[in-house]
Simulated scan of single mutants.
Amino acid sequence: MDSRVPVLCPDHFPDGFRRMVEDIVDDVAAGLPAVRPELRIEVGDPTGRPLLTFTVWFDFVRRTAFGLPVRMLQGNVEQLRGELAARLQDAFVEEYGQPLPPCPGHQHPLTPEVREVAVWLCPYDPGHWSCRIGDYRV
């Protein structure tokens, strides 16, 4: 992961989950020249429901937060990857007002979709461009 984007995960999260989050952030931030968000991930929330709580801070200001059920950690990895990609993409697009990650050759963002694996793809022409989420390189 690029050192521009610190990702804080609790120590008890598996390395694979930590890498998945870092790879998704790298994908979404790929179209930005310099990024300084801080992503905090915690387990639990004030209502007592078992949630993974994601808080994204840009320039030390809390911009967005969302939760995912902890049970998603024990479910389909590709569904989790796709859901995280969609939520993180929303946070970055809202903050920067740019299509992120950008669809190569087009003026819109790629769309996360879960097929056999979670992929980024062109929403207007799926044959134009696609890659596995976490492997975006242009």
Rank of each mutant, 00 (worst) to 15 (best):
P123Q: 03
A91M: 05
A118R: 01
E78I: 02
F54Y: 11
F92V: 03
N76R: 08
Q79Y: 11
C122I: 05
V56Q: 04
Q107D: 15
D59L: 09
T47D: 13
H12K: 11
I133L: 06
V77G: 08
M1F: 09
D59T: 09
C131S: 12
R18E: 11
V25E: 03
P50H: 08
D45P: 06
D23T: 08
R49Y: 13
T53A: 08
I24E: 02
E83R: 14
E116S: 12
L32T: 05
D2N: 15
I41A: 00
H106G: 11
D23N: 13
E83T: 15
E42L: 10
R62H: 10
L100Q: 01
V43W: 09
D15C: 07
R87M: 12
T64H: 14
G44A: 01
Y96R: 07
V77K: 13
H106Y: 13
D90G: 14
D15Y: 08
F17I: 09
C122E: 05
V61I: 10
L88P: 01
P104V: 04
V28M: 06
D27I: 03
V7E: 02
T111H: 14
G44Q: 00
Q107V: 12
R49M: 12
Q98E: 15
I24P: 00
G48M: 00
H108A: 02
C131N: 08
E38P: 05
R4F: 10
V93N: 06
P50M: 06
R71F: 12
G82M: 02
G31R: 01
I41S: 00
V119A: 06
P10N: 05
F58G: 03
E113W: 11
L32I: 07
V21R: 00
R19E: 15
V61T: 11
Y136F: 13
R49T: 14
F13E: 05
L110A: 03
W120E: 05
V43R: 13
C9T: 12
Y136K: 04
A34W: 13
V7T: 07
P46V: 09
D27V: 03
P69K: 06
C103K: 01
V77H: 14
V61Q: 11
G82I: 01
G134R: 00
M1G: 13
V138P: 15
T64K: 13
D26L: 14
P109W: 07
E22W: 04
Y96L: 05
R36W: 12
V117D: 14
L32A: 05
Q74T: 11
I24G: 01
P33E: 14
T64Y: 12
G105Y: 02
L68T: 02
A86G: 13
D27G: 03
P69E: 10
P50I: 04
R19M: 12
A86Q: 13
V61D: 10
M72I: 08
L84W: 02
P37E: 10
G97D: 06
L8T: 11
Q89S: 08
P102W: 04
Y136V: 04
V70Y: 07
P10Q: 06
V21N: 00
I24W: 02
V114R: 04
E38Y: 11
E42A: 11
R132L: 12
C122P: 01
E22Y: 04
Q98I: 07
L73F: 02
T64Q: 15
L32G: 04
L32K: 04
F17L: 10
G134T: 01
A34E: 14
D90M: 14
L100P: 00
